[in-house]
Design a protein around this nucleic acid. Structure first.
Lengths: 140, 140
DNA sequence: AAACAGATGCAACTTTGTTGCAAAATAAAT
DNA sequence: ATTTATTTTGCAACAAAGTTGCATCTGTTT
């Protein structure tokens, strides 16, 4: 685990620091997406707010994580898969937000559909966010 | 025009006030979506910030406008079509954000596709946001 | 181990959004 | 047309979210 984390950082030419390791751990420890606030809380407020912001920005720019637009316009982040590199992301999967438990997950197995745009429009990226009830919550 | 605006407000049992008329005008005057900031600027800061917030909230709750989640997590609003009523929206169209000019528009003629979710997931709403170059900007 | 580059924490600040309350504007009733 | 009741507005104060500059500290390189 620790090794995997160090690998990720090295591969992206980032120095290995406490905050970066801890925040990456959080992402690896759980399947869903995290909000900035989640991260602050779950690191036990050990790091400065500013540090968390900057760490997330660096991860974003390196393509380690990607951001997810949600219906209520809060910012969520989730780990990218290996194919993502600096600059362009390939997070071409669907995001799912559970209305009941509030969790957001990447449905990696569901790829975003092809969208036919009107004449003249050119698409570079497509974001699909599905709201509803997740596996666990739709049982009740 | 003024009549159309008064109609909309009356139909939704809202009193006709300066800020509501002016903000509706803005939406009717142009095809794209507006951010809160746009609205403040384009009303010439004539109304208090709080008033703009509250007006948008009322319009949202009445189904006069809908909000659009964007990749950079700013909040955008756009007019709903007639079929939208208090409570449930039918804004089941695709939103397009131009990377060049920054404008966001509703592609009313492009409906959101059917998404096949994994077992156990139930969807209640699907948001599709396409980034790229709009008609005007893709010419260059 | 020293020197350098980069990351962190702090303070201060900006922007964005919210709440309570008194004053003003709108709608309804006489 | 004037009064009354109801909404809406603006203000002030606040809370939350995000940014910037700078001095200090940590990680990396030689």
């Amino acid at each position: 685990m620790q090794e995997a984390i160090q690998d990720i950082l090295k591969k992206n030419q980032l120095s290995i620091t406490g905050s970066r390791v801890k925040i990456l751990e959080l992402f690896l420890d759980q399947p869903g997406a995290l909000a900035h606030g989640d991260i602050e809380r779950r690191t036990g407020e050990k790091f400065d707010r500013v540090t968390v912001y900057r760490t997330l920005q660096v991860f974003l720019s390196k393509g380690i994580i990607h951001s997810i637009p949600t219906a209520d316009n809060s910012v969520l982040y989730a780990l990218c898969k290996d194919e993502c590199g600096e600059g362009h992301h390939h997070d071409n999967h669907v995001h799912f937000v559970c209305d009941k438990c509030g969790n957001t997950v990447c449905l990696d197995e569901v790829t975003v559909p092809v969208i036919r745009l009107p004449r003249g429009y050119k698409s570079s990226q497509i974001q699909v966010v599905v709201n509803g009830k997740c596996k666990a919550c739709s049982r009740d």
